[in-house]
Simulated assay, not measured.
Amino acid sequence: MQADYFEKKKRNTLLFLAILGVVTVLAIIITEYNVVKGFSSLPKAVEWGLANFYPTQESLTKLPAILDKLIETLLVSIAATTTGAVIALLFAILGSNTTRVNAFFGSISRGIATIFRNIDVAAWAMILLFSFGQSSLTGYFALFFGSFGFLTRAFVETIDEVSGGSVEALQATGAGYFSIIFQSVIPASLPQMISWILFMIETNIRSATLIGLLTGSGIGFTFNLYYKNLNYDVASLVVVVIIVAILFIESVSNYVRRAVL
């Protein structure tokens, strides 16, 4: 019986790899991508990067302005994540099988979160450009909508996984709905929710760089400005600052996760 299970799993894996290989070959044919030329051009790309794309002494004079834009990007990312998390918590409580008021509101809550989650932040930025133009507000709302959709789904799964037993115990004692939420659901789910929020902050900081290219704000716009003006030394400094900031945020996030979890 166990041998049949592993044999079936092996066949499914091989079938999946075969389908993936066929799709890859078809994509190469349809897009007319030259695989040999693509890989053979890598050494020249590395050579160009080493010769042109590095910070210089002159580019360091732009560092204060770059850091200002970086701080703006970080603050927008954190603000969009935290406000999105608050709204996501409300929708997660309504959408969770453990805490929902009824099936109808649960389905509505999950459906709204699914729509927001499946629209990429770049697409949100393009949509919102028509309403708010190129501004930090556009980037904020794009990150907010993406964070809301993702965190709602994550919070729903967290509540269902962590709080099921304690909720049933409180219901058996006759506890009210809000007592269950504030005395059981939120305290039991909070550590895992904080972990998800930290993960979303890291993701939004990375996404904010791309969003800045579209919205004309933040560190992404700064990079695009210098790169298009062929100031590769300053553009490379922007990249270095972004990498250092992401590594720092990730280290802080990992420390907080270890302390909380």
Rank of each mutant, 00 (worst) to 15 (best):
K10S: 10
N12I: 08
N12D: 05
T13K: 13
T13E: 11
L14N: 05
L14G: 07
F16I: 11
F16M: 09
L17D: 01
I19V: 15
I19F: 14
L20S: 15
L20V: 11
T24G: 01
T24Y: 03
V25M: 11
V25G: 09
V25H: 04
L26I: 11
I28W: 02
Y33I: 14
Y33W: 08
N34Q: 11
V35S: 08
V35F: 08
V35P: 00
V36Q: 12
V36F: 14
K37S: 10
G38Q: 05
F39T: 07
S40Q: 15
S40N: 15
S40E: 14
S41T: 12
S41A: 15
P43S: 06
A45R: 14
A45P: 02
V46T: 03
V46R: 04
V46D: 00
E47V: 02
E47P: 01
E47R: 09
W48R: 05
W48F: 07
L50M: 08
L50I: 00
N52A: 12
F53N: 04
Y54P: 02
T56S: 15
Q57K: 14
Q57S: 14
E58W: 01
E58I: 01
S59V: 05
T61R: 13
K62F: 14
L63H: 00
A65C: 02
A65K: 10
I66E: 00
K69Y: 07
